[in-house]
Nucleic acid binder design. Sequence first.
DNA 1: GCGCTTGTTGAACAACCGTCAATAGCGTTA
DNA 2: TAACGCTATTGACGGTTGTTCAACAAGCGC
Lengths: 191, 191
Amino acid sequence: MSPESRREQLLELGTQLLSTRTLDEISIEVLAEEAGISRGLLYHYFGNKQDFHLAVVRRAVEQLVAITAPRDIEDPLEQLAVSIGAYLDYVVENYTGYVSLVRAAAGGNEELRAIYEEGRRALTDRIFEVTGPAGLDALGLSDSPTMRLLVNGWAAMLEVVIIDWVHDPRGIAREDLLGRLARALPGIVLA
Amino acid sequence: MSPESRREQLLELGTQLLSTRTLDEISIEVLAEEAGISRGLLYHYFGNKQDFHLAVVRRAVEQLVAITAPRDIEDPLEQLAVSIGAYLDYVVENYTGYVSLVRAAAGGNEELRAIYEEGRRALTDRIFEVTGPAGLDALGLSDSPTMRLLVNGWAAMLEVVIIDWVHDPRGIAREDLLGRLARALPGIVLA
DNA sequence: GCGCTTGTTGAACAACCGTCAATAGCGTTA
DNA sequence: TAACGCTATTGACGGTTGTTCAACAAGCGC
């Protein structure tokens, strides 16, 4: 098998296994057996277990960022809501995998978290890039350490609320939720 | 040594080690050696490594909830800020251990997360208990699934922002931060 | 003293990570 | 076609660590 497809196969398999186990519960042994290869071969493609974990998470984050491409809409809040909606839809369609990814990144070591936070950063940055300067002003945003702190907190809130809501969508309709989450940003930074 | 004190010794030791290592980096081997006992004895007190982890986290969460007892102040927002302040102070004084705890809980298995979320639930519930019905109304709160969803998100935001701020307090003063975090709650739920 | 419970140990077993020398398949070139 | 090199792949070995278990010892009631 060609190196590329083999690498891809192993990463894909790792991502799949992530749905049922924690990241470090995926033993090289089980993975190799599941893939029909020897343990040694895994060390040929990835230096060690840690590197394999990094590769799996990196791939998943890249997919997430790639799939949730933003649209361009006039009203800043509406635009924000649509972007959040795309993100939410992705979570809906990949619930178990997404949850596993978040948990793995949150509980992992520094490198793992760095990869994940970089991805989150890319998502939030993109949301604001699409929003023009005038729109940012309308949202009460400016670039300062405090704002970055609060926006980061808002993003963390997004993740938790979205996971909770996808887990049990009763209580509030999708559109209502998106509106509330979008308006929560100025609600926080202007408070 | 009496069973109680031995259990306590082991849990305390586990909590201490949590400051320098990840939860599952605490090997039974090192723990036993550090405590001056054999590995086998650990299995006499705790069924397995997993159970030991659960006990350590449970104890740490209980301490956290116990230490951050609320005071009673007239103004709801002021009261909220003070409660958050007590929480923040705890994080400042136990930074590395607290971070390890949060990460371990976030990345751990279902049981671990359940324990942690129960603790967070106790913290938020307590904040609202202390606040009277009139105060809750002033904060824009009521008891509905949507509110619980958003309040949970607000709590998640608190955790992230507080960890970030303790890690690097430049950019905003403590009192300012507490005020913003408190006002963020009505900012979110009234948005 | 005798049996019973229980804290405690150390050895043995099992699972798993990581290494490495060896092999086998395959394309290239003389 | 045969020799050669490259590389994907293997299988065995060593070391660490979680887990089990039979045995020991120390206290305690009878």
